[in-house]
Computed example of a mutant assay.
Amino acid sequence: MISAAGTMAVLFDLDGTLIDSAPDLGAAADQMRADRGLASLPMERYRPMAGAGARGMLGVAFDITPNAPDFAPLREEFFVNYEARMMRTRVFEGVAELVEALCARGLQWGVVTNKSVRFTAPLTRGMPLFATAGAIVSGDTTPYAKPHPEPLFEAARQLGVAPDRCIYVGDDERDMAAGRAAGMRTVAAAYGYMGADADLTLSKADAAIQSPMQLLQLLEAA
């Protein structure tokens, strides 16, 4: 069980933790298959890899890795497709209520994502949920991305809170590794996009939740 005593802020990963972007990410990649005359793949193939962004979606769609010579142009094509769809993304059920409850308890909150500001900025500006976020750190806000702890340190600085007074919630092993490296307590969002790394992600977390509102139970149990 996580000890939440002394918590002043809660930081969240974005995709798979606060927002369900898998349908839009999967559709962006599957459109690329359609454009090449390939058969469509079911969303169930894409969803577990949604947390890995372009790397995950292109891996499912074309069985390609980032070190392949034609990965970069495919990634940019994917980004263009995704930009045309991303404003249809919705928050997970219970997230809005969780954020409201955190604010009512006087806790600050923010976002730390590996998604680049190219996508994070319009998404967070266009969704009312993020109006009360005190920090939004994208994958290119600092010179590093998760699992490096610097993005989490940056979020803590923006909030004016010591890292060890923060909890970090995410659905990927990189989130747990980054949180622990930053000296934060970590919570695995088991309702997210853990996919094949589920066991590793859970093993590295201080606690796990099956729904967003379960985070309040951890805070209230401290």
Rank of each mutant, 00 (worst) to 15 (best):
C166R: 05
G192V: 00
F130A: 05
M194Q: 04
A133W: 14
R174H: 03
V137E: 08
M194N: 00
I136R: 06
G106A: 13
A182V: 05
M176I: 02
D172E: 12
G110Y: 08
A162E: 13
A121S: 14
G139H: 10
G139D: 10
T132K: 15
H148C: 11
V112L: 06
Y191D: 08
D164M: 11
A156W: 02
V137A: 04
T186Y: 07
Y191N: 02
A177L: 15
G183S: 07
Q158M: 11
H148M: 10
V111A: 09
A121H: 11
A131Y: 06
R165K: 15
V161Y: 10
Q158D: 07
Q158E: 10
G126Y: 01
S138T: 11
A188L: 07
L123W: 03
H148A: 15
W109C: 05
I167G: 02
V187G: 02
A196G: 03
N114E: 13
G192S: 03
I167T: 09
V137P: 02
G179Y: 03
A133R: 15
M194D: 01
Y191P: 04
V137H: 01
E173V: 12
G160F: 12
Y191S: 09
A188Y: 01
V117R: 14
E154K: 11
L129I: 06
P122Y: 05
V161L: 09
R125Y: 07
A181Y: 08
R165N: 15
A190F: 02
G106T: 14
M176C: 04
P149W: 05
G195C: 06
M176K: 04
Y144R: 14
C103W: 14
A182N: 00
K115R: 04
T186N: 09
G110S: 08
L159E: 00
A190N: 09
T132D: 15
T186F: 09
D140V: 13
E173Q: 12
S116Q: 10
D172C: 02
L152C: 00
C166L: 04
A104N: 07
Y193N: 01
D164E: 15
C166S: 06
A189V: 05
G134Y: 08
C166N: 06
G139M: 07
Y191A: 00
P128I: 08
E150V: 08
L107Q: 15
T186E: 08
A131P: 03
F153H: 15
G110K: 11
V117S: 11
V161G: 09
Q108V: 10
T141H: 08
Y193D: 01
Q108L: 14
E173N: 05
A177T: 14
D197S: 09
I167C: 06
A190G: 10
V117L: 12
D197T: 01
V111D: 09
C166V: 07
Y144P: 03
D172A: 12
T132I: 12
A190Y: 05
G195T: 01
Y144G: 02
Y191F: 10
L159H: 01
F130Q: 07
A196F: 00
